[in-house]
Design a protein around this nucleic acid. Structure first.
Lengths: 193, 193
DNA sequence: ATCTTGTTTAACAAACTTGTCAAGGCAAAG
DNA sequence: CTTTGCCTTGACAAGTTTGTTAAACAAGAT
């Protein structure tokens, strides 16, 4: 018999798992809670994904994939002006975070699980881009990249806790856009661009 | 009868708890493990500190206290030149992190527990200093402060994971000093100082 | 010496969580 | 219709972890 076209339940579980894991982190996430969210029993969850960790890894894979996309954008348009390339990287990275506001906190909290995969899949792809970038700037390229990540991620790390200095959700869109532009300006200014 | 002078066991438990909590976070921390580290039984731990959460709160109090110290240094020498004051704040904050390298990761991971206490004890004290600082600079003072925190904390957040770009522990001291000076320069340059 | 108060221990229970199992259901193939 | 293979379920077991309890212990007060 052909594999039945029952992606729905599997997808439902994956979506529920993604929400739960990002919301609560691996430790606080409960498999039964995920199953409930997906509208299935816990046994079914374990039927599709043997263990909690395997389910987690599936989710992690998805998210790392998103970051890979941004990283590969470092290669794109290799003969565009440096200023323009950096602007795009910062912008795309920030947009990624806007679309996944919980991602920074999730990755940071699960760093010990994330690091190996990150090193293997992302850092290796980043290396050539970093090497060529290094030829164009004075400061250490790795350090620059870390600063970009830092500056972009930090609002999302502290934001949920401090409610971004009391700003409600109304002006959120414009505030985020403002922060993004600011981050771009700051990085470019540091390189004298 | 006067309270017996048996601070030793209580302190031992507190120290063990601090190590365990910062090392593993609240969820992964085990009360029995803390008790073992302190060389006592788990029952004794619960005798001194009723619950795991109460013990955690005691530790959190200590750490928040450290941050309070740095924050209050914003008030110190109110008629020192702005440049000098900022330099001191960045420097003291960075030194605090050097002395407590696990603190950023700990605070970030436990943000949901940290945030309320942080808001009440630290942010309130920060407000007057921020108001007066705002009169002296163009950009948003809160944003500036977040950037300072961001820039200082990030190396400690990603450091343990990436091994700080492969740098071993030998050159660590000088590397940290280098990063600190860099952070100071970057912030000052942004303000045109 | 005995009482009292704070300390310490071993054993225990209660709750929670992950993961398994045996059995039934359902839809297409034969 | 029956077989076959995936899907689904309820009940359950096994392990962990927090927190309690009753009883013993040490030492100063009376």
């Amino acid at each position: 018999m052909e594999p039945k076209e029952n992606r729905t339940t599997e997808e439902a579980i994956l979506e529920a798992a993604e929400a739960e894991f990002i919301e609560k982190g691996f430790d606080q996430a409960r498999t039964v809670s995920i199953a409930q969210r997906a509208g299935v029993t816990n046994a079914l969850l374990h039927y599709y994904f043997r263990t909690k960790e395997q389910l987690f890894d599936k989710i992690l894979d998805r998210k790392i994939g998103l970051i890979e996309e941004v990283v590969t954008s470092l290669f794109a348009d290799p003969d565009l002006p440096l200023k323009e390339r950096l602007t795009r990287v910062i912008s795309r990275h920030f947009d990624l975070l806007v679309a996944n506001p919980g991602l920074p906190r999730f990755l940071m909290g699960e760093m010990h699980r994330v690091a190996p995969l990150m090193k293997e899949r992302v850092l290796s792809k980043m290396l050539p881009a970093l090497m060529s970038l290094q030829k164009e700037i004075d400061m250490d390229a790795t350090h620059l990249l870390l600063d970009i990540l830092s500056q972009n991620m930090f609002p999302f790390l502290v934001g949920p806790a401090l409610e971004l200095s009391g700003v409600a959700s109304e002006g959120m869109d414009t505030l985020l856009e403002q922060i993004k532009q600011e981050n771009i300006t700051i990085i470019l200014k540091r390189l004298g661009l």
